[in-house]
Design a protein around this nucleic acid. Structure first.
Lengths: 187, 187
DNA sequence: AATTTCATGTAACCAGTTACATGATTCA
DNA sequence: TGAATCATGTAACTGGTTACATGAAATT
């Protein structure tokens, strides 16, 4: 019987952040509301239930500070099992679905992979990303060709946006690969 | 008492497609599964309930063909109220939240706006998009500067991805604006 | 004394996912 | 006749949203 499918993206974000430094729900909310860790829900109705689920799954362990007050502060730290789940999630192969629907997840995996698995694994992740993105670009370009040239141009233009996006993705990834390889080569 | 908030993205997609040509749930599923209208759920558990909600809200009207069979085919057409809801949704101002979290919605609005509201309204939509995107880019560049230069580079690199994305968005929009203005200017 | 910030949480709702189910029609 | 395709739908689950609620501590 295998571990239940994928961590939701918010849970992955929380797990990765807490793995670097124990945090409370409030700390996470502030982080998501004010820093470039934008893009993740800062709403208490998302954070606190997610923390509860992670603790129930024994991936996090909460410690209550200020026990005597009515509103104690609870700081969460990653467990051994949690770290295994994190490295597992970061090591999974990138899929075509990921590059289309879960780009935020890939970026998250990229950043945490750097800290948790090191630069080599991160370069490998990025290379998978580049390959899949370029495959997808091939398909997209075929789709563009299939659109009749005489009709209204909006569909073609919207597709053009997709092309720009995926090209930018691939460009960025190749650039970062180059930087990381220089670094590890020089280090 | 005002109309209940926003149409969900899938409902907007369905409404816009059906406004061009009446379709069944199955037609929509095929479209979402095989054409560049990728990116929308082709799962029956999403499509059929969405169609039911749109019909209950009187935005669509279903007509059953092949009445006598057990599995009739039901084709949906947009109603007057549905067309009003569609133009309303397309005419709403673009928000900062849209450009960060709902880019898919903006692309959808762009494409349908072309057909439903015409090129001038579409150019206006794109111009809003460009302004908000460039404002956001300013903020992002400030965030990049705030990252300490000596630490691990992963956070900065992930932010760099955001910069590339939003720059590509703005570039695409400006390009399309230019094309549409040439067209309407020449036409 | 009033406001803001710290800090945690729940309840109702919404909409999407996967998996399941049914059965007709068309094609090889 | 068996497989693929047409065609519609439900049930259980998941997890995010908004809005609400509480109350201490720090700041003005």
């Amino acid at each position: 019987m295998q571990e239940r499918s994928d961590l939701p993206t918010l849970s992955l974000a929380i797990l990765g952040l807490v793995s670097q430094e124990p945090m409370s729900g409030y700390d996470l909310r502030k982080l998501f509301a004010t820093t470039p860790m934008w893009h993740f829900s800062a709403s208490p109705g998302a954070i606190y239930p997610a923390l509860k689920r992670l603790e129930q799954a024994r991936l996090l362990k909460g410690t209550i500070q200020r026990k005597r007050t009515l509103r104690p502060r609870q700081v969460f730290a990653i467990t051994k099992k949690g770290r295994e789940a994190l490295t597992g999630a970061l090591s999974k192969p990138v899929t075509r679905e990921d590059i289309i629907w879960h780009l935020d997840r890939i970026l998250l995996r990229f950043a945490f992979s750097g800290y948790v698995l090191g630069p080599e694994a991160t370069v490998a992740l990025l290379k998978q990303f580049v390959v899949l993105t370029e495959e997808y670009l091939v398909w997209l370009r075929e789709q563009v060709k299939l659109i009749p040239g005489q009709g209204p141009p909006y569909g073609r233009m919207a597709l053009g946006h997709g092309l720009e996006m995926y090209q930018a993705n691939a460009r960025w990834a190749r650039d970062v690969i180059r930087q990381l390889e220089e670094e590890t080569g020089a280090g």
